[in-house]
């Protein structure tokens, strides 16, 4: 059964139509890629699912629950996590602390307990251990205690990935994870994504421009252009779809 079900979602900003009646589904355990030229609406869709944008029309169901009624900080409780196109890490915190914030929804110490130090020590230790494990899994553990600010863009992207994993999601949405990586690193990333999907039992939704990686790792691809879905299917079908080719390369002369 579909984990994420997007039905006729439209998003309008004044006169601009960012998404036009978009519908697609993602099955449990799939790696689904959302591709399309710049401005096609891919990040907009992410923002709708993570409730940072309001949809003008349509519905989004996750795991049988209606998403569009929830406040943004509630979606992580359902099991949805995301990364950001331009990286939204916390520069004043260390790499490890950034990942620990990812586990916020699983913690208990609020202001009351925080002030009087009730349960703080044990929670901190547990969160730190868990954070280090995730960093290790992504090859970042040496950087654990470094400030997040000032690190190379590709590294920051991986740290964000780690932070998203720390939320213990069912659905992980990655926004251009291969941005800023060299060709070799992109291949590594592709492998990592697959391994993490298997190891952590995840479903993934990717926005990506690196076609080789997309074609290599995706189970399902959705193609957008000008806010509309123009094609959908397994990599081979999409690769040869004339509408997709036209959207990217233009119509044949």
């Amino acid at each position: 059964m579909a984990l994420l079900s997007v039905r006729d979602v439209s998003v309008r900003f004044g006169g601009v139509v960012a998404l036009d009646s978009l519908s697609f589904e993602i099955e449990v355990g799939q790696i689904c890629a959302l591709i399309g030229p710049n401005g096609a609406g891919k990040t907009t869709l992410f923002n709708v699912v993570s409730r940072l944008y309001e949809a003008s029309a349509g519905s989004v169901d996750f795991d049988g629950r209606d998403l569009l009624r929830l406040a943004p900080h509630k979606i992580v409780e359902l099991g949805i996590a995301r990364t950001f196109q331009n990286v939204a890490l916390f520069p004043a915190l260390t790499v490890l602390e950034n990942v620990m914030v990812g586990a916020h929804a699983h913690g208990k110490v609020g202001f009351g307990r925080g002030l009087v130090h009730l349960g703080v020590r044990s929670e901190e230790t547990a969160m730190r251990r868990r954070g280090l494990d995730i960093l290790d899994r992504l090859g970042l553990v040496e950087l654990a205690h470094r400030p997040a600010a000032g690190l190379p863009f590709g590294t920051l992207k991986r740290i964000e990935f780690a932070r998203a994993l720390a939320t213990e999601p069912k659905l992980l949405m990655l926004d251009e994870p291969a941005n800023g990586l060299t060709h070799g690193e992109v291949d590594e990333l592709g492998t990592t994504i697959r391994e993490i999907r298997d190891q952590f039992d995840l479903t993934m939704l990717l926005v990506e421009h690196h076609m080789t990686m997309v074609m290599a790792i995706s189970d399902h691809i959705v193609v957008l252009d000008f806010g509309r879905k123009i094609a959908e299917g397994p990599p081979d079908a999409v690769r040869n779809d004339p509408k997709v080719i036209e959207a990217y390369l233009g119509a044949p002369a």
Partner: peptide, 16 residues
């Protein structure tokens, strides 16, 4: 601190 520096990202990891 997370709210101070990136409040939208903080919301997506569950910070109210």
């Amino acid at each position: 601190v997370a709210v101070r520096d990136q409040e939208l990202a903080a919301a997506t990891v569950g910070v109210n």
